[in-house]
Amino acid sequence: MTATRWLGLATLTVLFATSALAQAPSAVGRWTTIDDETKKPKSVVVIYEEGGKLFGKVEKLFREPNEEQNPLCDKCEGTLKNQPIIGMVILRDLKKDGDEWTGGTILDPANGKTYKSKIAVEDGGKKLKIRGYIGVALIGRTQYWVRAE
């Protein structure tokens, strides 16, 4: 291999490596939600992209043996009333906004309420910061989800 070809190959390798490092970790994937109070895993939510927006669907619930294994959202309203929580889309319409996704909503099946939402990937793609709020983002609740294996 000539020195010129080797230098060209090395330059391309550096360019590809640099562009890969420059990309922010994606929120797309499987995430384990953590209960605020018990700090135990609560569910697995699959985040996916559709039409340039992010959505999140409940894939699995971690339930005690004495609890209903496939509960219904009895506190939800409208078309979600009494629908199974497993398979339910709880994150909707988040749009990329710099290093985070904003402008969407999150549903809390525990109380049936929908909140404005924004999310950001942290810790090199290992954690997802979820903020649910009413009105302005300063007034709300933050959860941290961890990437599911």
Rank of each mutant, 00 (worst) to 15 (best):
K95A: 15
T33S: 13
R147T: 05
R92F: 01
T142G: 06
E77T: 13
V44S: 01
L15S: 08
T142V: 14
L72E: 12
K39V: 13
L54S: 10
P84C: 07
D99L: 14
K53F: 05
V89D: 05
E59F: 02
K39L: 12
Q143G: 07
L80P: 02
M88I: 03
S117Y: 04
F16G: 02
L21N: 07
C76H: 10
S26C: 05
Q143C: 06
K39R: 12
K118M: 09
D123V: 13
T142H: 04
L91C: 03
T13N: 07
W101S: 02
V136F: 13
N82V: 06
F62H: 04
L91R: 03
S19V: 10
T79A: 15
E37G: 00
T2G: 15
G132R: 06
E100A: 06
V45K: 01
E149S: 11
T105N: 09
V121R: 00
D108F: 14
R131I: 06
E37M: 03
A27T: 01
T142F: 03
E122F: 03
D74N: 10
T11L: 15
P109L: 05
S19R: 10
G51K: 13
I85M: 02
M1F: 04
E67Q: 15
K96P: 10
R92I: 00
E122Q: 14
K127E: 12
F16H: 03
P25K: 06
G104K: 10
R30Q: 15
E59M: 05
L12Y: 08
K60F: 11
I106C: 12
P25L: 07
Y115I: 13
F55A: 01
Q83H: 06
E59R: 07
S43Y: 01
K75M: 13
L9Q: 12
K129M: 07
V46C: 00
Y48K: 05
F16L: 15
Q143R: 08
K95G: 02
W6C: 11
T33Q: 04
V28A: 05
Q143L: 11
R30P: 00
K42R: 09
I86S: 00
G125K: 07
A3G: 06
P65N: 03
R5A: 14
D74G: 12
P71C: 09
K39T: 12
L7S: 07
K118S: 11
T79P: 15
D93I: 01
E50T: 12
S19F: 14
G78P: 07
E100M: 14
P41G: 09
A10T: 14
I34C: 03
V146M: 14
T102K: 11
G135K: 02
I130G: 00
W145R: 04
T4R: 14
L72R: 09
E64A: 11
L9R: 14
I47V: 15
G140Y: 08
K57Y: 08
K113V: 03
A24W: 11
Q83V: 02
K81H: 11
P84D: 08
L7K: 09
A24D: 07
K42V: 00
A110Y: 03
G124M: 05
L91P: 00
M1I: 06
V58N: 01
K116H: 07
P71N: 13
L12M: 12
N66W: 10
A24N: 10
Y48G: 07
E37H: 10
I47W: 00
G103P: 13
V58C: 05
G135Q: 03
P65S: 04
